[in-house]
Amino acid sequence: MSTADTPVIIALDACTEACSVALTTGGNVFSRHAVIPRGHARELLPMLDGLLAEAGVSRDAIGLVAYGRGPGAFTGVRISVAVAQGLARGLGCPVIGVSSLQAVADVAGRDAGPHRVAVAIDARMGEVYWGLYERLEANQPLKLRDEEAVLPPAAVTLPTGWTEWQAAGTGWAVHSQALLAALGTAPARILDQALPDARCLLPHAVAAWRNGTLENAASARPVYLRDNVTG
């Protein structure tokens, strides 16, 4: 990732059982990742603080905050967004939110080759968060096809033409049978342990910086997908 024209960027994600932070400065990338369900509030800032020390970067050098914006566990998603808001407001810098489904797809498609990834994150209550990502030419970003959704595993579908594809995300660990039965085709591989990683947020942050598609702290928002919560 060439970052000559970009500031120091930090990224954080707490949307799933994983908690991760990453930082890029002058082309170098530093990151930390831990699987600590329920420990995010305790660990997120210490991890970030440690990362800055490791990278030898001071807080006021930070020019952009990328955050995992969900979907995922509601509380974790809000920790992610709340911390991003506080950091950006305090540092006086913009933010950029990245989907957890996208981050899982990026973990699966890390090698930059062409990929099709069907991401399912366990959404509890018998449902999955679902997103389809494809990269048709090498070195391009994995792009979302259609829309993200929350739905029962039996309701998922694949676009026609998806012959060679991979599966990623914890939804595939919990609901693999139902998902495979619904799709009627098998993936080349299943990465059912794949969790979002803040490292994967950095390229999106760089792209957003270059395109100028940034948000301010006040407009940083969670994306829950599941919006009927009063039943």
Binding site: A41, L45, L48, D49, R59, F74, T75, R78, I79, A82, V83, A84, Q85, G86, L87, A88, R89, G90, L91
Partner: peptide
């Protein structure tokens, strides 16, 4: 718990950013 975490998250990270 969820409501507390929002205020705590924004407040704590704002304080860290401001040192």
């Amino acid at each position: 718990a969820g409501a507390l975490l929002v205020g705590a998250g924004v407040a704590r990270s704002l304080a860290w950013a401001l040192d």
